[in-house]
Design a binder for these strands. Sequence first.
DNA 1: TAGATTGTTAATCGATTAACAATC
DNA 2: TAGATTGTTAATCGATTAACAATC
Lengths: 215, 215
Amino acid sequence: MGSVKIQKTPTVRRLPTYLYKLLEMQKEGASIVAAPELARYMNLTEIVVRKDLAVTGVTGQPGVGFKIPELVKAIRTYLQWEIPSPAILVGAGSLGHALLGYEGFEEYGLKIIAAFDADPAKIGSVVYGRPVYDIAEMPEKLRGSGIEIGIICVPAAHAQQVADQMVACGIRGIWNFANVSLRVPDEVIAQREVIAGGLAVLSVKMAQQEKQSCD
Amino acid sequence: MGSVKIQKTPTVRRLPTYLYKLLEMQKEGASIVAAPELARYMNLTEIVVRKDLAVTGVTGQPGVGFKIPELVKAIRTYLQWEIPSPAILVGAGSLGHALLGYEGFEEYGLKIIAAFDADPAKIGSVVYGRPVYDIAEMPEKLRGSGIEIGIICVPAAHAQQVADQMVACGIRGIWNFANVSLRVPDEVIAQREVIAGGLAVLSVKMAQQEKQSCD
DNA sequence: TAGATTGTTAATCGATTAACAATC
DNA sequence: TAGATTGTTAATCGATTAACAATC
């Protein structure tokens, strides 16, 4: 049941943040960056940064730092983000709109090319340049397209059904924003995004902070 | 700089998912749940589930399981979610809309009571029942309100400025959806939500899966 | 050369997993 | 009693942190 285990998950999760920061620095004309600088930005120690960057295989210059373009390329290679993967999104509600409107995904190896919905009021519309099709048309739209990534933004109650349809249409990776755990075949990856997890961490940190300031 | 370290972060991140599932089971009339059942749902081993539930202080009945209402109460207490905290949201763009439209936050201890934006076209509007005020009015609207949580949904370029304003208005916890690392005073918590992290994990898992199926 | 940073090797810390007695 | 599940204690695994020689 999509039980692939990967190594260094914390590092993998941090890589997009490095990538984004490096691209920003590049825009500002920088070409070299040292670990301590990235560490300050990321709120990490410089040792963590060096270990993280090491997974990409890039080596820096002692006393100097790392070449930004080299790092950018290596992170993209490591994450398989060199060529953006085409993806479809199901559920053109408010969250679907937000994801369709986010312009940074191309930097993150993702290119959402179409959306699907079951609501007749939405079908046929265009959201941030992407067409919204009837979900019933998913099989024909995806056939032979080579699209392997599907994003689920439907209410929890419909998510499993949408996932089943996606799998039937050849989707191999599902990015799930619905509040349920999906059942998918072994060869399909389902990655669930639980934003409430971050809220829980915030709550506990605030409680702890409060406790400390009372000491 | 908001450098509170908390214990058992992985467990804390999982608690909202347990909570949501337990509430669902409760709606369906269940009153008892055993660790193996939750484990199957969460794609975890039952030992992890028992360790997770143990932090709440609830004890189960050997051979039977845990009382659902007791677990629900204990998780809420642990996360300080018994009484929803009032919060404000800044940035009524598409992501802001999505968060304002999400109805599950009350279960997660959060009650967004108002939004702020700088865009005259948005100021004065009402989004999912919440008023959108001019961001310039934040100080007066927050004064004496006791609101301690702020949610940032503005573009990265404006996020630091918004964070500074929030801090000046007495906000103690910031849930940051902008693509930047914020600088806040020691006594303020800034929790950044990096959804691209999940996408990175999905990408790496898909690559690994592909590699495996070729063996 | 001096100062800064890298990359490696070892030590610590914490989370997950395993084993098993206790309990309903 | 037999079957199932709990909770505890110990073992393993992996990530973070520390120490330091090597390099520009």
